[in-house]
C-alpha cells in the first residue's frame, strides 16, 4: 500500500504559495535570517502577513502562531480536493508538534515565576497544551473523527507517515490529514543555540500539511518505516543503516532531500545514505526551510513529491535522525 498525496500545503520561511516556494528552491534564493527582539541568535521566522487569512478565525484570535501556521497549511492542503461536511467529519487528523506552543508556555511560566502562581493567565494556559493546535485545525475545518497529536522532530514526522499508513489500513475511510507545525520563541531558539544542535542550519518555524489517500498502486509515498530509537550518534548511524537496508531494491532512491546541516548527526546521516545508495544526489533544503523539526521535514517530503511529479527524479528519499532520539526514513516514488 502506498500513500497518494492528494493535496499539500506549507508555510515556510520562503513563502506559502506552492509556486513561490518551489521557485525559491529552484533558483537558490534562501530565506532571510532575522534576529527578533530578545533572541540570542539568528532565526528564520515566518512573516505574519502570510497567514493573515486565518488569524481572524474565531478559534485563532487568542491562539499562538503555531496554530495559525497549522490551520493555513491544512486549508491549503484541502483546497484542491473539496470535501463535503460529512467527509470532513469523518477525516482523521494526525498532527506532529515539535515544541508546541512554546511562546505561550514561556509567557505563562514567566508570569508565574515573576508574579507568583496566582498570576498565571487562564487564557494562555490551555494554549500551551501540545494538542491545542490540532484542536484548532479540527475546529477550523470541521473535523470530528480521531485527532492524534504526536510529539517529536523530523523522525517523528516520517514515523507519522507510517502511522498514517497503519491507521488507513484499519479503516473504511481511506483518507487522512497529516499536519506538522512548529513555532519559534527565544526560549527554544536559545536552547538550540546552546546545544549546538543546528550548526549552519538556522532554527525556523512553519507548518506543512498533507491530504493522504491509501492506494495500492499510485505515485506517492511508497515506503514508510516506524524507525528506531538511538542513544548516541554512532548508534543512530547503525539504526539508520538498518532502516535504509529495509528499502526494497525497486525503490532505491536516486535523490535525497536533505538539510545538508553541518552537525555531526546530519553528517552521519548523509554518510549512511551515501554508503547504502552510492551515487545518490543530495538536494539541499536547509537554507530554505531551516530547522523546524517535524514541520521542516514534512516540507522536505512535499518538495520531494514535487521532484517526483515534475519528473526531475524517480525515487526520492527523506531521512531524519533527530535530538528526540529517533531515526526514520521514507521514499517517494
Amino acid at each position: 500500500m502506498s500513500l497518494k498525496i492528494l493535496g499539500c500545503g506549507w508555510v515556510t520561511p520562503v513563502g506559502r504559495l506552492h509556486a513561490e516556494v518551489v521557485s525559491r528552491l529552484e533558483n537558490n534564493l534562501p530565506a532571510s535570517p532575522s534576529r527578533p527582539e530578545g533572541y540570542e541568535n539568528d532565526v528564520l521566522a515566518i512573516d505574519p502577513s502570510s497567514v493573515q487569512d486565518v488569524a481572524g478565525l474565531p478559534r485563532l484570535r487568542r491562539s499562538s502562531v503555531i496554530s495559525h501556521f497549522a490551520v493555513a497549511a491544512a486549508r491549503d492542503a484541502l483546497a484542491g480536493s473539496p470535501q463535503s461536511a460529512e467527509g470532513l467529519a469523518a477525516l482523521p487528523l494526525l498532527f506532529v508538534a515539535g515544541d508546541g506552543s512554546v511562546a505561550y508556555t514561556r509567557r505563562f511560566y514567566q508570569d508565574v515565576v515573576e508574579r507568583g502562581p496566582g498570576a498565571g493567565s487562564p487564557i494562555l494556559f490551555p494554549e500551551t497544551v501540545y494538542n491545542a493546535p490540532a484542536s484548532h485545525v479540527a475546529a477550523a475545518l470541521g473535523l470530528r473523527d480521531e485527532a492524534l497529536t504526536f510529539v517529536g522532530d523530523g523522525a517523528a514526522a516520517l514515523a507519522a507517515l507510517d502511522s498514517a499508513s497503519a491507521l488507513l489500513r484499519s479503516r473504511k475511510e481511506k483518507r487522512c490529514l497529516l499536519v506538522a507545525a512548529q513555532e519559534l520563541d527565544r526560549i527554544n531558539a536559545s536552547a538550540y543555540l546552546r546545544w549546538h544542535l543546528t550548526c549552519n542550519l538556522l532554527p525556523s518555524e512553519g507548518a506543512a500539511a498533507l491530504l493522504l489517500e491509501a492506494t495500492d498502486h499510485s505515485p506517492g509515498i511508497a515506503f514508510t518505516h516506524a524507525g528506531y530509537s538511538f542513544g548516541s550518534n554512532r548508534d543512530a548511524a547503525e539504526k539508520l543503516l538498518r532502516v535504509l537496508g529495509e528499502i526494497p531494491p525497486d525503490l532505491a532512491p536516486d535523490a535525497c532531500v536533505s538539510t545538508m546541516a553541518d552537525s555531526r548527526i546530519a553528517k552521519m546521516e548523509r554518510d549512511a545514505i551515501s554508503r547504502t545508495f552510492p551515487g545518490i544526489s543530495f538536494i539541499s533544503s536547509g537554507p530554505f526551510f531551516g530547522e523546524s523539526l517535524a514541520a521542516s521535514t514534512m516540507q522536505q517530503v512535499i518538495f520531494a513529491n514535487h521532484l517526483i511529479s515534475t519528473g526531475c527524479h524517480r525515487r526520492v528519499l527523506v531521512a531524519a535522525a533527530g535530538y528526540h532520539g529517533q531515526v526514520c526514513a521514507t521514499v517517494l516514488a
Binding site: 508538534a97 508546541g100 497544551v129 501540545y130 494538542n131 490540532a134 485527532a147 492524534l148 497529536t149 504526536f150 510529539v151 517529536g152 517523528a156 514515523a159 502511522s163 516506524a226 524507525g227 528506531y228 530509537s229 538511538f230 542513544g231 548508534d235 539504526k239 532520539g325 529517533q326 526514520c328
Partner: peptide, 18 residues
Amino acid sequence: IQALQVFGIDAPVRIISN
C-alpha cells in the same frame, strides 16, 4: 529511551500528546 536502554530495547517510540 532512558528506561528502554536499561532493558536493551531499541524499538521506535511514538509519543502521543492528546
